[in-house]
Design a protein around this nucleic acid. Sequence first.
DNA 1: TTATGAACGGTACTCAGTACCATTCCGGTG
DNA 2: CACCGGAATGGTACTGAGTACCGTTCATAA
Lengths: 228, 228
Amino acid sequence: MSKPAARTRLADAAFALFDERGYEQTTVDDIAERAGVGRTTFFRHYRSKEDVIFPDHDRMLEQIQDRLATSSHATALAAVSDAVRLVLLHYLAEGDLARRRYRLTSKVAALRDREIASVARYQRLFREFIANWMGDSTESASLRAELMAAAVVAAHNHVLRRWLRGESPDPVAEVDEAMREVLSLFPGPRSPSETGDGGTTVVAFRTGQDLDLLLPSLRRLVEGQTGQ
Amino acid sequence: MSKPAARTRLADAAFALFDERGYEQTTVDDIAERAGVGRTTFFRHYRSKEDVIFPDHDRMLEQIQDRLATSSHATALAAVSDAVRLVLLHYLAEGDLARRRYRLTSKVAALRDREIASVARYQRLFREFIANWMGDSTESASLRAELMAAAVVAAHNHVLRRWLRGESPDPVAEVDEAMREVLSLFPGPRSPSETGDGGTTVVAFRTGQDLDLLLPSLRRLVEGQTGQ
DNA sequence: TTATGAACGGTACTCAGTACCATTCCGGTG
DNA sequence: CACCGGAATGGTACTGAGTACCGTTCATAA
C-alpha cells in the first residue's frame, strides 16, 4: 500500500473534485473521503479549504523577504525587480498546477480575492523595503515608494497572467523586458561616480506636452530621485 | 418610538460591538440583538458580516464605471485620475466612519483582505478602460495599461491612507498633486493639435543615467505612447 | 373595512473551522 | 520480547456564518 504522504492525496482529491463539481459544490468532507482520510486530517494538513489551492504563499513571502534582506543591488528598484523575478520562477516551476489554480481563481470570487490578498502582501513588503532603502521619509519619497512597488507588482502580474493563459512562450524574457520598462519609468538618482564631467549627456527634443506635466520628470532627471 | 430604518441601527450596533469586543468576538446574533431585530433581518440588510463595514463598494464601483463611460478627457489617464478622485471624495464624505473602518481593517486580517479585493476591482476596471481606450492591443500597450492603472490606484491609496491616519490636512490637494506625479511618469502621445510647429519645445539636460535606461522614455516622449 | 405587498421573526438546515479525546502506528530502549 | 513515548490519525461535539422557508405583522391603498 503506497501512502503518498496523505497531504498529496488530499491536494489531488481536492483539485479533482473542484474540476468535476466546482469549488463551492465540494465540501471538505468530500475531499477527505476521496483522499481516504478523516476530516480532521484534512485540517491538520491545510488550515482551510482555500489553503489546498495556495499551499505555500507564506513560505514564498518569507523567501522573498530573505532575498531582499540579503540583496546587494545598486538601487531599491533593482533589488525588488530581482525579488519579484523569484516569484515568477516559483509559478513557472509549478507548471500545470499553477494553470489549474488559475482556472479556479478565474471562476471563484472567493479564491480570486484570496490570491489578490496574497499579492498585496508582496506589494506591501516591496513598498516598505523601498521606503526603507530611500531613507528619505518625506511625503513625496513615500509616494514614490508606493508607485514603484505597485509598478513592479503590476508588471509581474501582467507577465504571469499572460503565461497562465498560455500567451507567453518565454515569460522570463518578458518579465525582464517588463522590468526594464518599469525601471525606465523611474529614473534613478545619479550615483557619485556619475556626477563627474564624464557622464554628461545632452538631449534635445520637441514635444507638444504641457510644460507643467513635463517639469517633475525633468527635475528628477537632473536632480535625482530625492528631488521635489 | 423612532425607527431609524433598522439598517442604520444594525450598522451602529455592529461598529459599537466591534469596538468593544473586537470583530471576531462579535457574532451576528450579538449585533442583531443589540439592534433589537432578528438575525434574519440582519442578513436581509447586509449580505454578510463583513458587509456591515463595506456597505457601498458595489454602488461605488458602478458609479465609477458610469463616470468613465461618460467621461470626456484628453487622455485615458486623465479620465481615470478623475474617476479615482471620486473614490477619494466618497471616503472623505464618510468622515469619521471611514476612519473607524480603517482602524478595524488595520487589526483584522479578514477585513483587510476584503478591502484589498475591493480596491483590486477598481484597478481592474481602470486597466480595462485604459486598454480599451488605447485600442492598441499589442503586448507592450497592454503592459502600459496595467502599469497606469496600478499607478493611479497606488497614488490614491497613498493619499487615502495618509488622510485616514490623520496625516493629511488637505487630501484633495494631495491627490491632485499625486496624480500629476503619476501623469508625469507616463508621457502621453502628442494630440493632433500639438503636432504643428507651434508646440515645439527644446530641452537640453545633463545626466549620468545609462542610455539604455533612458531610451524607452525618450522614444515615448518623441513618438507618443504607441511607440516601442 | 379588506386586500396586498413589503418587512420582519423564527426554525431548521448546511458547512467551515475548532477543541478535545481515544486509537493506532512506529522506532527506540530496557 | 515487552514497554514506552511521540506522532499521525479518526471520531465526536461544538460554534458560528450563511441559506431556505414559512408564518406573521404592519402600512397603505382601495
